[in-house]
Amino acid sequence: MPQNAKAQNENLGPLLSVTELVIKPGHEMQFREGIKAWMACYSENNGDWTWRLWQRQQGEGTVFVLASEMANWAEMDKSDESGASCQDLGRTLINPHIEKATNHITRLQPGISKNALLTEDVIRVSFYSLNNANGHKMMEVVKEVEAIRKQANLEPNGYWYQWQTADPGSPSYHHVMPYKDFAAMDIMLEGVWQTVEKQAGKAKKDELQAAFRSSLDLSWNYIYKLDKEISRLNK
């Protein structure tokens, strides 16, 4: 393998399969009970798949997000016999309560993301859709900002993901900011741009901030809470 190809592979973060599930109105309880029944069957069949199910706290309707990590694309070639043994439960107890399901693959961006594994129960997820003219500037800015924060002995405060697949309305990147609980969101911390101004000066902060904003077509965010009862964090 060429040395440059090896280096590129080493810099790749793991993939994250993300499925957004829109639940039919009034069907949340039935959906959750269906997931529990499927989980019990899957465990009895010694399944090794793990996942997190997050419930969106704002926005229209009842929305859950199923997130599961993959080391690489090759994992999609593997069959899951344990899951196949429980597929009838999925069809009868889960699927009837789902109005819409949308799946995409994203990839963690190492170097600008936290090294520690995600263990918190609440996350704020910010989504970024980039424009064609200046979209390339966004990650350049993020990397420079993190380099400045590192000079102030500050580590990345969250996780950046690049979308590997996308619908016409999908974002290009999203950032996950973790919190221990909702109360932790009340703690006022120094903002990223405040740190940049303190470390590099107002002119540099204004330059980077303008470049970041010029890269965006649209941005939005939601807060999600981990539903531990219907998540499987360990095998």
Rank of each mutant, 00 (worst) to 15 (best):
T102G: 06
H104A: 13
H104K: 13
I105C: 06
T106D: 10
T106P: 00
R107A: 12
R107S: 11
R107C: 07
R107D: 05
R107N: 08
L108P: 03
Q109K: 14
Q109W: 05
P110H: 06
P110D: 03
P110V: 04
G111L: 11
I112L: 08
I112S: 04
I112E: 01
I112N: 02
I112Q: 05
S113W: 04
S113V: 02
S113M: 06
S113H: 03
K114P: 02
K114L: 10
K114R: 15
N115M: 14
N115A: 14
N115R: 13
A116V: 11
A116T: 15
A116D: 15
L117E: 13
L118I: 11
L118R: 01
L118P: 01
T119N: 12
T119V: 14
E120N: 07
R124C: 08
R124S: 15
R124K: 13
V125E: 03
F127C: 03
Y128Q: 01
Y128E: 00
Y128S: 00
S129R: 14
S129T: 09
S129I: 02
S129C: 06
S129P: 00
L130G: 01
L130C: 01
N131K: 10
N131G: 07
N131V: 05
N132G: 14
N132S: 11
N132L: 12
A133L: 15
A133Y: 10
A133T: 14
N134I: 05
N134C: 02
G135V: 05
G135E: 02
G135A: 06
G135Y: 02
G135N: 03
H136S: 15
H136L: 13
H136V: 12
K137M: 09
K137T: 12
K137H: 10
M138S: 05
M138Q: 07
M139D: 08
M139Q: 09
E140R: 09
E140H: 09
